[in-house]
Write a protein that binds this DNA or RNA. Structure first.
Lengths: 351, 351
DNA sequence: CTGAAAGCGCTAACAA
DNA sequence: TTGTTAGCGCTTTCAG
C-alpha cells in the first residue's frame, strides 16, 4: 500500500526539482495554457490585464519555455548545422569565424558537425537534411557528389555551400583560377621567369581548389609567353612539413626557381622555413607568394592572395538566411573578390 | 463541402513529402509502435522474427527516428553546449579543437555558443543550464562569478570549466604562476637580468591568467635576487599591434631589457615584429619568450611555455562525460602540465 | 514478447 | 479575448 501512496507524489508545491512548465504558469495566473503560449510568443490577442498576470506568474516561477518541446511542436529548431572538416586548416577556422559572426546577429544557433573522414561526411550529408535537427545547413569546403547534392536540393532544409560548388545548390565561391593567375602574374611582373608551383596533390583532389589555382598559374605563364616547365611543378601531401621537403627539392636542383607560388599559405610558410634552412634570403634571392590570406600570412609577412575567408562565412550565412525566409527555387551563386596583398616575401628578380 | 473533403487529405500513400514516422514503420511491419521503438533502441525483448520485419520496413521507408521527438520524450539531447569567447584568440580555437576531437569519439554533438560581450555570456550562463537544450556544458576561458557558479552547481546539467576556476565547479586548469616562473627562470638561466614582462592589462582582468603569469615572473626574480624594476613592466590592450607599440617603448628606452617575457604568444610575435623593425637581432641581441604554445609560435620559431591547449579541451570533455554518467557531487580539478619549448628566440645573454 | 495508451511541453486550430 | 483540445514523434509503463 505504501508504494501506492509514494508513486504519484502529487502537489509537491513547496519544492519542485523539475523546471516549471507552461501549465504551472497557467495555473498560477489563472488562465489557460494557450494564453500563456500567446504571451510567450507575443501574440497580440491578449488583453493587457491578462498579459500582465501571466508575466507576473512567469517572473515568479522563473519560467523559461522548453525549446525542445517548442521545436517538436513548430518543426523549427532555430539551429543551423555547419558541416566543416576538422578544424585542422586555418582557412576553415577563419571561415567559421565569419559564420559565427554573422549568425550571432540572427536568432539562430550553430551546431558544429566536424568531419574527420569521408564516412563522417557521408553520414552528415545523408542525415542532417532530414532528421529535423537543423533548419538550415552550411557546408564548408566539402563538395557533395551528384547524389548528395540531389538529396540536399530535394530536402526542405535549405543548404548553402561555402568554398564548394554544385550546380544544384547555392554557393559562395572564390575564383581560384583567377587567383592563381593574379599570383603568377605578380611574380612575372616582378621579372621572374623560373616560377614554381608547389601544392598538394592535384590529381585526385579532396577538394579541387589547388587544381584551379594551378590552372591559373598555367594561364598566366601562357599569356606571358613563358614556357611551362614540368620540373618547376611539384605537389605532395598537405601540410607545412611536406611543403618544406618539396621546397628543398625545388631549391636544390641545378637551376632552381627564383620564385615560388604556393597552393596555400601554410605551404608558403613551409617554403620560408626551407629557405631559412638553406640560407636563401627571402625576398632578395627567392620570392614566395601564398594563397588564402590567413592570419599566419600576416604574422610571417607573407605576400599572398587574400580570398576573404571571413567574408565567405558571412556571405554563406546571409544567403542561407535568405533561403530560410523565402524558399527560392534557383540556386544562387556568389563569387567573392580576390586581393593581392603585397608583403615582404616577393621582390623584383635580381639576376 | 469541398473544404471538408480537402482538409484531411488522408491516405496519400503514393507521395509523402513528410519524412516517415515510427507509426508508418509500425503499420508497414504490422506491429505496434512500441515494438518499433524497441528495435530502434536495441531493446532485447523482441523476437528475431519481429525484429527483422521491422528492420525491413525501416529500410524500405528509409526511416530515421526524429531526434527532437526523442529528446522531448527522454529528456536527453545528446548535445554538449560549449560556451567560448568569440574565436578571436588562437588559444580558444586550439582548445576547441581538443574539445571537438574528444567529442567526436562520443555520441554527443557540440553546439557552439560564442560570446561576444558580457551580456551574451550572462545570458548563456543563465539559460543554458536549465532550458533543456544541452546535456552538459563546457565553458572555455570564461570564469563565472559566485552567483553564476552556484546556479551551475545547483542545476542538473553537469558543467566543466576549462581555463577558468571556481571552487563550486569542475575545472581543467593551467598553473599560470608556475608557467610565469618557468619562463622567467629560463631567461635568468641564460644570463639575463634586465627582463621585461609585457602583457595585457593586469588590473581589471577579463581573465586573470596574465596576472598569474606576472606573479610567476615576480617570484622568479625574487628567488634569483634580481630586483624588480617597474620600468621593465608594461601592459596595455590585447592584440599584436598593441604589443608592437609596447615593445617599441621598451626597446627604445635608455637601458632596454635584454629579454622580454610576453604574456602570450601573440604578444610575443608583436615583439618580434618590433625587433625586426628596429633592426634588433633576435635572439642574439634580444631574447623573447611567449606563453601558450599556439601554432603560430611554431611558425615563428618562438620559444614559449606550452600549456597544452589541445589537451585542455580533451580533458574537459573527458571530465564532463564522466560527470554525465555518474553525477558526482564534489568538484574535480585537473591541472595540466607545462612545458618549456625552446626554439629560436631565446639565447644566452651576450653583454 | 508485444501492443495500447499515457505522457514529454509546447503550438495552433477551433469553439466559445 | 480566451480556453479546450488535438497533435508534434517518440519512449515507457502497464497489461496481456
Amino acid at each position: 500500500m505504501l508504494t501506492y501512496i509514494l508513486k504519484p507524489v502529487p502537489f509537491n508545491e513547496s519544492f519542485s526539482p523539475m523546471p516549471p512548465t507552461i501549465r504551472d504558469v497557467a495555473k498560477k495566473a489563472n488562465v489557460g495554457i494557450a494564453t500563456v503560449s500567446r504571451v510567450i510568443n507575443n501574440n497580440t490577442s491578449v488583453s493587457e490585464e491578462t498579459r500582465n498576470a501571466v508575466l507576473v506568474a512567469i517572473e515568479e516561477l522563473d519560467y523559461t519555455p522548453n525549446p525542445i518541446a517548442r521545436q517538436l511542436s513548430t518543426g523549427r529548431t532555430l539551429t543551423i548545422g555547419v558541416i566543416v572538416p576538422n578544424l585542422t586548416l586555418p582557412s576553415y577556422v577563419e571561415r567559421l569565424r565569419g559564420v559565427q559572426a554573422a549568425l550571432a546577429e540572427s536568432e539562430y544557433h550553430m551546431v558544429l558537425y566536424s568531419v574527420g573522414n569521408p564516412l563522417d561526411r557521408d553520414n552528415y550529408f545523408k542525415d542532417l537534411s532530414r532528421n529535423g535537427l537543423v533548419d538550415g545547413i552550411l557546408i564548408i569546403s566539402l563538395p557533395p557528389d551528384d547524389a548528395q547534392a540531389e538529396r540536399f536540393a530535394q530536402s526542405d532544409v535549405p543548404t548553402v555551400l561555402i568554398d564548394a560548388y554544385h550546380e544544384q545548390l547555392c554557393s559562395v565561391l572564390t575564383d581560384d583560377v583567377r587567383g592563381g593567375e593574379i599570383a603568377t602574374q605578380h611574380l612575372i611582373d616582378l621579372g621572374h621567369e623560373r616560377i614554381s608551383f608547389l601544392s598538394d596533390i592535384l590529381e585526385t583532389p579532396f577538394h579541387p581548389s589547388s587544381y584551379y589555382r594551378y590552372q591559373g598559374y598555367r594561364k598566366a605563364l601562357t599569356e606571358n609567353n613563358i614556357p611551362f616547365d614540368e620540373k618547376y611543378r611539384i605537389s605532395g601531401e598537405r601540410g607545412r612539413m611536406y611543403a618544406r621537403k618539396m621546397a628543398k627539392q625545388l631549391l636544390t636542383m641545378p637551376e632552381p626557381p627564383s620564385a615560388i607560388f604556393a597552393g596555400n599559405d601554410i605551404q608558403a610558410i613551409g617554403i620560408l622555413d626551407t629557405a631559412r634552412e638553406l640560407q636563401i634570403r627571402v625576398p632578395e634571392e627567392l620570392s614566395v607568394i601564398g594563397f588564402d590570406g590567413i592570419r599566419d600570412a600576416e604574422y610571417t609577412n607573407l605576400t599572398t592572395i587574400d580570398q576573404h575567408l571571413h567574408e565567405s562565412g558571412e556571405e554563406g550565412v546571409k544567403m542561407l538566411l535568405q533561403e530560410l525566409e523565402s524558399l527560392s527555387a534557383a540556386p544562387v551563386l556568389k563569387r567573392l573578390s580576390l586581393e593581392l596583398v603585397q608583403r615582404n616575401t616577393t621582390h623584383a628578380f635580381t639576376g
